[in-house]
């Protein structure tokens, strides 16, 4: 087992963002982050922590601007994935407590059998994650109109 193989306890976002605004969905962002770590993992390794931090900030901003109905639908999808993924492959533990490789296996298992909530969660994660300039570069995407060259986190 490597150091990264054992999942860190899911990070809790502070209740307020750096501008003092109350966060709407800290728990939802935390769960999404745990799922993201597995979706974008290779073997035992999740994505670099800096990218996950960036993703969490993006998701937090996105959810604060999405309507209540949207947040409700996403919360339901995340809950479904969170609860069903470990069960779908016979693991009676919470998703967060599974090592990354097992988490990815559980999500993959669920995706094959009950695709809709996994697709919803994956879509939300991918739309943001692949906008990170380093990730875009890694997959050979150089459409600068779609991912403008701007430091991550810098305002448009």
């Amino acid at each position: 087992m490597t150091e990264r193989d054992v999942a860190d306890p899911p990070e809790r976002l502070p209740a307020h963002d750096p501008h003092g605004r109350q966060r709407d969905s800290p728990g939802l962002v935390r769960r999404l982050s745990v799922i993201a770590e597995a979706v974008f993992s290779v073997g035992d390794l999740g994505p670099p922590p800096e990218r996950l931090d960036w993703l969490r900030r993006e998701l937090d901003d996105f959810l604060s601007r999405a309507g209540g109905q949207t947040r409700l639908v996403l919360s339901l999808a995340v809950w479904a994935v969170w609860l069903l993924a470990p069960l779908s492959c016979g693991r009676f533990r919470s998703l967060a407590s599974l090592p990354i490789r097992e988490r990815a296996y559980a999500l993959s298992h669920l995706e094959d059998r009950f695709g809709a909530p996994v697709l919803a969660v994956k879509a939300l994660l991918c739309v943001h994650y692949y906008e990170h300039p380093d990730v875009a570069r890694e997959i050979g995407f150089d459409g600068q109109c779609l991912v403008p060259l701007r430091a991550p986190g810098a305002p448009p």
Partner: peptide, 25 residues
């Protein structure tokens, strides 16, 4: 559609997903 949307609609989690994402070009 942006690469993130392309990646989201392809099946796979973890290594399988990352490998597919590299085929986006």
């Amino acid at each position: 559609v942006p690469p993130g949307v392309l990646a989201a609609t392809m099946p796979g989690i973890g290594r399988a997903h990352v490998a597919r994402a590299r085929t986006i070009p």
